[in-house]
Amino acid sequence: MSRKFQENVIAIITLVVFCAYLITALSFGPNARLVPLPIATLGIFLVLIQIIRQNLSSSEKLELDLLSSLTGTTNKVAITEKKPPKENPHQLEREIRAFMFVATFVGLILLAGPVVAVFVFASGFFILTSYYAPIKAIWISALFCLALYILFVEILQLQLYHGILEPLIIG
């Protein structure tokens, strides 16, 4: 997938979200839609220009040199401009894995509550990445879990969520 294709996908998704927002805002009363409606319209307009520009122009002409905009002068000191970083060939694979890790963690929280989820996720992560040996990983995760429990539950008096599984197991 080329960078331009990815940029177009993102822009089109953004456009769809703005359109859905606009359509939803139309059903509100005049006071409730007074600001959301023009903001959604502006958003659609901006995304359309962005799509046109990124497909017709090779460079981002709207990028501004912050320093020269502030001072009105040309900056003599060489400062490297921020450009999209070169993607490594395994980027997509790593991104999918990262999102899966996050989704797994959230799933664990929903199923077993945050305390158990943190222990399972942290020890699993340490073991899978081979950062610690299994026994050490479990010890460190357990200690970390205990620290979080003391901080949030004992000190901050947080009412814990015990997960979907608890009523099924305990009955």
Binding site: E60, L62, L64, L66, L70, K82
Partner: peptide, 8 residues
């Protein structure tokens, strides 16, 4: 206007 990267 002063945001990093593209103004749009």
């Amino acid at each position: 206007t002063f945001s990093e990267g593209s103004l749009l």
